[in-house]
Design a protein around this nucleic acid. Structure first.
Lengths: 111, 111
DNA sequence: TCCTTTCATCGATGGTTGTCGATGCAGAAG
DNA sequence: CTTCTGCATCGACAACCATCGATGAAAGGA
């Protein structure tokens, strides 16, 4: 991490401790889960209700049912949403801790 | 500043317009720009310093110079960073408005 | 028992992306 | 002018992803 300060006095000043590699990978994985319009819309819908049934989502996004199920799995693997099954239906909901953690990433303005 | 009410409760029933398609696409594009460990690390570094030159980044990430340049272009196209050239060197810096907008997405606690 | 509904998984496919070497280009140095 | 350096772009390749139809599993009703 040293710099060629002898040759480039203006450039490449020393830096504070960078983000650990593992933290960067985890954060990138979370952002990747949100890097799709459908998944953003799903999260938005989940934020508007305590829980949403899959049948409502498949009816809302003009996509095939397997595709919606795939997006839900991506969000679930990222820890952003959780599912509870009651009878034949599956209800998805946001994981508040994950959202709070994301908010902290961008700098919580509160003291 | 107008905030995209993605994760803020819109209140009440699902009858309200969930999220404009265009807004979901724009947000997903921003998240896609952050959906890579290297780019997350770059943004982290930029948040620790006012500006960082490309030579420092290429020396820090054990990647080829074209690859680093590619990541910087992705971040720049997303409006997350901006570049100023002085002489032979290029200095990158965060765009504060973009970060603030992202913070608003996850529910700015301030009214 | 058989059938329907709800949702997840599988396999395939066209499009996208991260990475590199090679090249180009503008300043600085000699 | 010639050479070197810092950075962007190009072309190519392997890996990944969003999407679909088909299929499977489980629950409830006839």
């Amino acid at each position: 991490m040293k710099t060629l300060a002898v040759l480039q006095p203006i450039c490449c000043t020393s830096d504070a401790t960078p983000l650990p590699r593992r933290a960067a990978e985890d954060l990138a994985a979370t952002f990747k889960a949100l890097a799709d319009p459908t998944r953003v819309a799903i999260v938005s819908r989940l934020s508007s209700a305590d829980e949403v049934c899959v049948c409502d989502l498949t009816a809302a996004f003009d996509l095939s049912q397997p595709t919606v199920s795939h997006h839900l799995r991506v969000l679930r693997d990222a820890g952003l949403v959780e599912v509870t099954r009651r009878g034949t239906w599956a209800y998805y909901a946001l994981v508040p801790e994950a959202i709070a953690e994301l908010r902290g990433v961008f700098g919580d303005p509160r003291p």
